[in-house]
């Protein structure tokens, strides 16, 4: 069973949602990033999503763009990112790790999927490859042993959503509203999208884009999601020199059911 499947099964038994923490690899530099990866796991992240920086990230808002720019300015190469992933895998054999990047990064390196799988990545989401262009990419991912993750949006028509459900493995990255990363979601999450994905037999739906408070996390899970991914709020905090441990702990706590929350008491549920 894949690391994602094992994780979702374990969390479902406990009545918890999955909490995914996003970091940009190489931001602000390679060693500091390695420590941040430790910190998000220490804070309680169930899964980790990592960006491989691209110079022209059209799906990203200012916070993630700035993170990519810091990494590239520090001279970080794709090979360095794959090494960071391999180090992470060595330390955390069970924590699912997914890569988020752009098509030209994948296309420029012969054997990107194989290298990513060998480094220990579980999944790959290519932000500018929609379902209609995805088949050659997902075929190669599956041959290399890395799970394709595709984005499903509230405005995605049924035919495309069926393709997304068919091509995706690991989890389905759900976007609740139009826009780019880091824009405020106002805590509204689309239960209809989740219901459509479930009917189509898609992998577990996870909401990304605009998750920054415990209220967002609960609203997303209440809408039927299996988990959430928080990116810009963590990256923004880190860019100001903060440790992500408390923020991750706070947001992870919001994925617990009432019983588990009682068990932990208020300790984890204070603001960072």
């Amino acid at each position: 069973m894949s690391r994602y499947a094992t994780m979702f099964e374990r969390l479902a038994e406990r009545g918890e949602g999955a909490f995914g923490a996003f970091l940009m690899l190489g931001d602000p530099d390679i060693e500091a990033c390695a420590e941040l990866l430790d910190a998000v796991v220490a804070g309680g992240a169930d899964m980790v999503e990592v960006g491989i920086p691209f110079s022209d990230s059209v799906a990203d808002g200012p916070v993630i763009q700035a993170a990519a720019k810091r990494a590239l300015s520090a001279g970080v190469r794709v090979g360095d990112c794959l090494e960071l992933i391999a180090r992470f895998r060595g330390r955390y054999p069970d924590v699912p790790l997914g890569i988020l990047t752009y098509a030209n990064i994948v296309a420029a390196r012969g054997g990107f999927m194989r290298d990513a799988a060998e480094a220990g990545a579980d999944s790959l989401l290519i932000a500018d490859v929609p379902a209609l262009e995805a088949p050659p990419f997902t075929r190669e991912m599956q041959q290399a042993g890395i799970e394709p993750v595709l984005i499903a949006a509230a405005n995605t028509p049924d035919a495309s959503l069926a393709n997304i459900a068919r091509l995706s493995r690991g989890y389905t990255y759900c976007v609740s509203r139009a826009g780019i990363t880091g824009t405020h979601s106002e805590g509204r999450f689309d239960g209809a999208l989740i219901a459509r994905l479930k009917r189509l037999g898609a992998p577990p739906p996870v909401f990304g884009f605009g998750i920054s408070t415990p209220e967002h996390v609960r609203a997303a899970l209440d809408a039927g999601a299996a988990g959430v991914i928080c990116g810009s709020a963590i990256v923004d905090l880190v860019s100001r020199g903060g440790s992500p441990v408390n923020l991750v702990g706070l947001l992870k706590a919001a994925t617990l059911n009432d019983k588990a929350r009682e068990r932990l008491g208020g300790a984890m549920i204070e603001s960072p």
């Binding site: 262009e133 595709l150 984005i151 949006a153 405005n155 826009g179």
Partner: peptide, 14 residues
């Protein structure tokens, strides 16, 4: 050629 954009833009291009 092709249509390499985030999924969210595909309906607009269609």
């Amino acid at each position: 050629g092709g249509c390499y954009v985030p999924e969210i833009l595909v309906p607009a291009l269609e």
